[in-house]
Design a protein around this nucleic acid. Structure first.
Lengths: 130, 130
DNA sequence: CTCTGTGCAAAAGATTTGCAAGGTG
DNA sequence: CACCTTGCAAATCTTTTGCACAGAG
């Protein structure tokens, strides 16, 4: 199917790349001031399209999904309190799928590692309080 | 805070353990025939409670979250087509968090590995078609 | 009896969809 | 000028919440 090049689509892609693992809402907010400000539906439609095309990655998260404009293999730190996602600084582990012993017919295409914990902001909230 | 032992709570816990990574809807469906059939709100309330208490684990997934009654450390196979979750048969990888080089103040509490791909049922759908 | 837990229905969020109008190639 | 895209609003879907009543301890 033919794919056209609209300003909205380009803006949304640029925004995902510019922000740090934004969710749909943060993308809409960032686009608020733009020329032909993209509506919510357009943002969602294009996020799905860009994910399908492989231009961005979707990070499934509680509440709202987040999006990652960086395609290099890497892992994430996921804050269990605010839900935000950060990049983990560590070498990529190769061949983890080789350790799978029996996938019962499941076709493994890739894998990711997710570290869970608290981000600096949420640590501050818990301790200092208020 | 005091916690009471209701039949609904026990049924919901049993159901999560009996089913294979069910989502809230599948749990409601399974409970449909039970004595005091638990309402949707009760299911959600108890799932949250059981997760907090550490009796079950929550698996954040696109669409609806899923729940895991198995607490032993293990990893998952996640079908990108139907969203279902299966257990990965492989030894647990120790010390991955030791490889982190710089967490920028993020407090790592644990980690998980998720394999992505297609489950047998979805492979069949894609090929045979219809 | 007291107070936590349940059911129901309404509310709140996130995401999708129908449709007429707009803009790209 | 064909038809992919957008905007808007309504529709869906998942999960949460308010409130009166039920039931565990």
């Amino acid at each position: 199917m033919e794919r056209r090049n609209t300003r909205q689509r380009q803006q949304i892609l640029d925004t995902v790349r510019a922000l740090d693992h934004p969710d749909a809402d943060e993308i809409c907010a960032a686009l608020a001031g733009e020329q032909p400000r993209a509506g919510r539906a357009t943002v969602y439609r294009n996020l799905n399209l860009l994910v399908q095309q492989g231009d961005i990655r979707r990070i499934e998260t509680a509440g709202a999904d987040r999006y990652d404009g960086c395609l290099r293999p890497h892992y994430h730190l996921h804050c269990r309190c605010c839900g935000r996602v950060f990049d983990a600084h560590m070498p990529v582990v190769e061949g983890l799928d080789k350790q799978l012993q029996d996938t019962d017919g499941f076709a493994v295409e890739g894998y990711t590692i997710e570290f869970i914990g608290l981000c600096p902001a949420c640590i501050k909230l818990k301790s200092g309080g208020r």
